[in-house]
Amino acid sequence: MNWIPITRITKLGLTNFWRNRWLSLASTLVMTLTLLIISMFVIMTMVINKTTDRIKSKMDITVYFNDSATTENIADLQQKLAARADVSEVKYISKEEALQIWEQTQKNQQIKDLITTNDNPLPRSLAVKATTPEKLNDIDNYLLSDDFAPMIHKISYEENKVIIDKLLAITAFIKKMGWLFSGIFIIVSILVILNTIRLAIFTRKSEIEIMRLVGASDRFIKMPFVIEGALYGILACILAFILMWLGVYVIIASLVTQYLGAAVTENLKSFFSSYIFYIILLQFLVGIVIGVGCSLFSIRKYLKV
């Protein structure tokens, strides 16, 4: 294989980039911004999706009983629930067990001392796990029927449902905003890059004319511009990645440590590093596609070779 044209074409592309360095810089920065915004929204969506999934998997219905409810009635309900196809697990929590859980969760001794074995207002309860979180609603409806109303003090699902619905709404909102902002910035960077390549073609008009005159092949004339476009993508990808790394590891990490504790920071870092490959790949693909695509389009339009 003859490497001479490849090295010469690459050299021409790099020269182009350097000759129009201010324009190249502008294109690269706009592209960097685009990549950052896309990655940011992708990461945010991933974090929220993960959180919602985790909350959903932990979701259950806890039925708290009135102290007046008889043990037989509770056992009867437990059996009825366990017989349902959409219930995977029903666990009975007695007053004593509820107290133990209470003591485990409270750190403050004064608060702990508020409840003792003799004076235990904690209700008995049934923790119901569904086969899938979506089924919880049916189970909830079943429990709300009049048959059980006298013995049930409270159903916890109603409270969680609000939180889950809010989370889902936020995710949907962020996804929509992500699409919107990514779209706007993709359009802006496409316009800026189209303009840059067009100017590069105009500044090299006489050179291109001479190239054609002396018999340079189409490929030889076009490829430097494609390389220039690809270079915007690659540099933007590197820049965006560095900025994101700094953002996550330095700025966000220190804020999170300050307000939410070091454990959360570790979680965040491990999350980021586990998805790092996908983020780089996404940035690289978007960068290259925009850069090369714009170059090819400009060449077709402004360079009739």
Binding site: N2, I4, P5, R8, I210, V214, G215, A216, F220, I221
Partner: peptide
Amino acid sequence: AFALEVCEAYP
């Protein structure tokens, strides 16, 4: 030399 370079001539 440019005329030869763009036509993929050897150095």
